[in-house]
Amino acid sequence: MYVTLLLLPRRLQCIIPHMRETSRSLATLGGGEVWRSTVEPQSELDEEIQKARMKDMPVEDMKNPFEREKAQCILCQYKIVPDYKNVKLLSQFVSPYTGQIYGRHITRLCAAQQARLEKEIFKSQSAGFMPYYFKDVAYVKDPKLFDPDRPIRPHRF
């Protein structure tokens, strides 16, 4: 095999990397090895070619371009603080059939906001602003913030 390669014409030799004129030198950027010519640039044209090649080399210390945006819950996103007097807002997190507060896997709130919301709902119900066993009829047709039939994690109801 080697013998046959050595016998190849020069034009073909430059295509095959592990022949005389190139070597496995320099940088292992991003884990992969980089092939570079070790031949000294002989003319201006060669130098320009070298420069153009360097532009195509992998960029060091680059941010991960595939990193996702940090997800935020709807209350944190719009900086809403749930209040026990705001029955219209609180009713959006309650089942219209049973008045139960939907869980975190349905509402998609962070733990702190969900705890705060539940506290305000209990206050509101206790103070006589909000019903216990159903959603206020005036708010039933409000826009939906989430779909209870498609939770993040499965649930038993």
Binding site: K70, A71, Q72, C73, C76, Q77, V81, R104, R108, L109, C110, A111, A112, Q113, R116, I152
Partner: peptide, 13 residues
């Protein structure tokens, strides 16, 4: 006064 906190949803999902 409502205390400030960072949203931890991206950790939780």
């Amino acid at each position: 006064t409502p205390e400030e906190f960072e949203c931890t949803l991206h950790e939780e999902i």
